[in-house]
């Protein structure tokens, strides 16, 4: 019998070790796996690569993860926040590496990873500093850069509903990067607000089929986004 549910956050994060690459779902404060992120910060890990859209806002446990020195590198599109300067301070001191990637390229690299596409050409960033050093080709009269698929060891997601097969639904703008990361990681771990029976999510409403999901932990944090 398939049962992706694990009893607690520790079981959900079992095996995550120093040097791991970890995708974090969420855009701003919405759709972030806050409980998983806070539990991760408590593990005392080092040298993690964090792949997410944003880095280092005051909310959602990312600040604690940065404070503990667990993060060696961030891959993201927007490492600025109006409510926290911690990432900037670490960056200025040379304590953290940054791979800045345009947001659309970042998510398409993840999509490609999950879809078995090793690399793709895109006009985004062609002729700019973020395209510098990359293979280029003119396609239909347009300069394009070659971007490679972006994989991770783990993806940490926040879902709205989940069943024991790992089928997931999301809530409004909480969907964002979550379903894309689900397919791009070797081990995909979701926290869900609601645990439902098989069939409890209408097949039309399953956004992430359970085939992409390895572990689910039920974190009933209520109905709010933060």
């Amino acid at each position: 019998m398939i049962n992706r549910f694990v009893p607690d956050l520790a079981a959900a994060l079992a095996g995550v070790s120093d040097g791991a690459s970890i995708m974090l779902g969420g855009f701003g404060q919405v759709g972030q796996p806050v409980a998983l992120l806070e539990a991760l910060a408590d593990m005392g890990l080092r040298d993690l690569t964090i792949i997410a859209n944003n880095a280092g806002a005051a909310f959602g446990g990312m600040t604690r993860l940065l404070e503990t020195g667990a993060v060696g590198k961030v891959v993201c599109s927007y490492p600025r926040s109006s409510d926290s300067t911690l990432f900037q301070e670490l960056y200025a001191k040379g304590r953290i590496k940054l791979e800045l990637t345009p947001q659309g390229t970042l998510v398409e690299r993840m999509r490609a990873a999950g879809a078995g596409i090793p690399a793709f050409f895109t006009p985004t960033a062609a002729g700019t500093l973020l395209g510098a050093g990359k293979e280029t080709r003119e396609i239909n009269g347009r300069l394009c850069v070659l971007e490679e698929a972006l994989f991770a060891d783990y993806a940490l997601l926040e879902a709205w509903e989940a069943d024991r097969w790992g089928n997931l639904s999301y809530k409004l703008s909480g969907r964002n990067f979550n379903p894309v990361m689900a397919a791009a990681a070797k081990i995909t771990i979701a926290q869900c607000r609601h645990k439902v029976e098989l069939g409890g999510i209408d097949p039309d409403d399953v956004i992430t089929p359970g085939i992409y999901v390895d572990r689910v932990v039920h974190v009933p944090e209520g109905e709010t986004a933060v």
């Binding site: 855009f27 701003g28 404060q29 919405v30 859209n53 947001q103 659309g104 998510v107 398409e108 993840m110 999509r111 895109t122 006009p123 985004t124 809530k171 409004l172 703008s173 909480g174 969907r175 964002n176 990067f177 979550n178 379903p179 894309v180 956004i207 709010t224 986004a225 933060v226």
Partner: peptide
């Protein structure tokens, strides 16, 4: 609280609005 825009400000959804993941959002853009 589940409806923010790219500037991370709360917004509303019009009747007829749709939600998509980030890859589809940028596929639409690109």
């Amino acid at each position: 609280p589940w409806v923010i825009n790219a500037g991370k400000a709360y917004v509303t959804l019009l009747p007829g609005a749709s939600i998509m993941n980030s890859a589809e959002s940028f596929a639409m853009i690109r």
